[in-house]
Simulated assay, not measured.
Amino acid sequence: MQQIIDFILELDKLKGVTRKTRPLGLDRAENSAEHSWQIAMLAASLAPYAAPGVDIQRVIAMLLVHDIGEIDTGDTIVYAEEGQAERKAAEQVAVTRIFGLLPAAQAAAFMALWQEFDDAVSADARFAHAADRAMPVLLNLANKGQSWRENGISHQRVVKRIGPPIKDGCPALWDYLEQRLAQASTQGFFGGDAD
């Protein structure tokens, strides 16, 4: 029991990891715990659009563990391209430490889910990735491009980074977002040069 309590209290630190996007109607950045909860709910809500055989409960579990390493590494905006291998290695060390607080069998199960999400090969992981990539986009669309404008992120850069995993994991969601992103471009929701 103490190992589980120690693990859960360690997870509380995820509430202190800030991201670049603001929650609707608030003047602060969202935190990674809020993000994880919201994308888990997004995936559960998108269940009717999942490919046959996708296990939504496994998807939700992946989404709840996928950012736990940020307790040690912090969050990096999804559009960052440099240093990706180093960030992934640091996150692997972090999740090994954090899941290691649990009894071995539970640690192994959570680590396997984290790794499956990271590999993005299974249908479950691809659906999870679609939800993970979509949520910041949905917030930016609702916030008139707040973090895109503040961080100089162009329309082309957004589409290049989030389009393929969303289209692969949940094509109906991409069909929805692609139109809205094009409209947002005409409304000036993006920053930076067209790259």
Rank of each mutant, 00 (worst) to 15 (best):
I77S: 12
A128P: 03
A89T: 04
F190N: 08
F99D: 04
D12W: 05
G100E: 05
L14D: 00
I166S: 08
Q38D: 15
E10S: 09
L26F: 10
L11N: 00
A125Q: 12
G188V: 03
R22P: 05
D55I: 06
K144P: 01
F7I: 01
T18L: 10
M111I: 03
D118Q: 13
K144I: 00
P52D: 11
E86V: 02
G16T: 06
S32M: 13
A130Y: 06
F117I: 00
I8P: 00
P103H: 13
N31W: 04
Q146M: 07
L24H: 05
H35Y: 13
P164Q: 03
L9M: 08
G25M: 06
F110R: 15
V59F: 06
Y49V: 02
F110W: 13
V93F: 10
A85C: 01
E178Y: 11
L113H: 15
D195A: 09
P103C: 14
I162R: 05
R22L: 07
K160M: 11
A44E: 13
P52C: 02
E150G: 04
G53C: 03
M41D: 12
G192F: 04
E34K: 00
D124F: 07
R149Y: 10
F110Q: 13
A131I: 06
R157L: 14
R180S: 03
D168R: 15
